[in-house]
């Protein structure tokens, strides 16, 4: 096995051009599980550990190499909240936003946030960069639009970030769980609301009917919250697997969305 550890994006792309089958290694929290199990035997590894460009983070952009330990300090409530729920301190010190995008698991904790704020994902290759909406990037369970010669540069956030944001997830315990269901809700001063659901569909989903219904409510009453919760559950597309049942996920995601919305209304 050979490993290269470039210190720039250009260096990564050069290495990738000469070794299209290379394993691109970020925090390792997914990749090394496969390596340890013998399911992945890379001959050529490109480490992103020393690529400072990927660690850039400001109000409008989160580099792919930014760890959850750093994102815990975000001023955006939902981003800080979701980051605190990722794995454990050990996992958050290593795991990166780009890793969530690269793995593209429907349960990736950062993904409902990126979907709820309509983030765009920037990919870069030797031929230049391209930026696409989150839902063109996340195309199926563990499937994304990344081409072999590309890497993920990061996620762009909108100029007009919503006023209030909240994240909630449920699993069998508080730490070290993969979400059974997760949700991110945003609401701006005009009442426009977005709701993104994780782990209840083949990719992260937006509950568009629930959004439309509750965005029209200036000050949602109990009946409106009930209807919002019902619509979220209805719009979820969960499956039964080893973590939970479709029935439980459908119910839980509605409850979580309602709680997250209530936090945005306070």
């Amino acid at each position: 096995m050979e490993i290269v550890r470039p210190d720039s994006v250009a260096g990564v792309l050069d290495a990738l051009a000469s070794h299209p089958d290379a394993l691109v290694l970020a925090g390792g929290t997914d990749t090394m599980v496969l390596v340890n199990a013998g399911a992945l035997r890379p001959e050529y590894v490109i480490s992103l550990r020393h690529v400072e460009d990927l660690k850039a983070w400001n109000a409008r952009f989160i580099g792919a190499g930014v760890t959850y330990a750093r994102l815990e300090e975000s001023e955006i409530a939902a981003l800080a909240e979701l980051s605190r729920t990722v794995g454990s301190p050990q996992i958050r010190a290593a795991g990166t936003l780009g890793g969530n995008l690269g793995t593209a698991s429907p349960a990736g904790d950062a993904l409902p946030f990126l979907a709820a704020v309509d983030a765009t994902i920037e990919l870069v290759s030797k031929h230049g960069s391209r930026t696409m909406p989150w839902d063109e990037f996340l195309i199926g369970p563990k499937q994304n639009a990344l081409e072999p010669a590309e890497i993920i540069l990061g996620a762009h956030l909108p100029d007009d970030m919503p006023w209030r944001t909240a994240f909630a997830k449920i699993g069998v315990r508080q730490a070290m769980v993969i979400s059974i269901a997760s949700v991110c809700v945003t609401r701006n001063e005009a009442g426009e609301t977005t709701v993104a659901l994780g782990a209840v569909g083949p990719t992260v989903l937006r509950a568009r009917r629930a959004e439309m219904m509750v965005s029209a409510e200036k000050d949602p009453d109990e009946a409106a919250l009930d209807e919002f919760q019902r619509l979220v559950s209805e719009e979820s597309r969960p499956i039964t697997d080893h973590r939970s049942t479709a029935e439980y996920r459908r119910m839980a995601v509605g409850v979580l969305a309602r709680r997250a919305l209530e936090r945005c209304l306070v």
């Binding site: 290694l25 925090g27 390792g28 090394m32 599980v33 340890n36 480490s47 996992i91 010190a93 290593a94």
Partner: peptide
């Protein structure tokens, strides 16, 4: 603080 099982030694 990290899990050493998730760090590739060469990295």
């Amino acid at each position: 603080l990290v899990c050493s099982c998730l760090v590739m030694a060469a990295d």
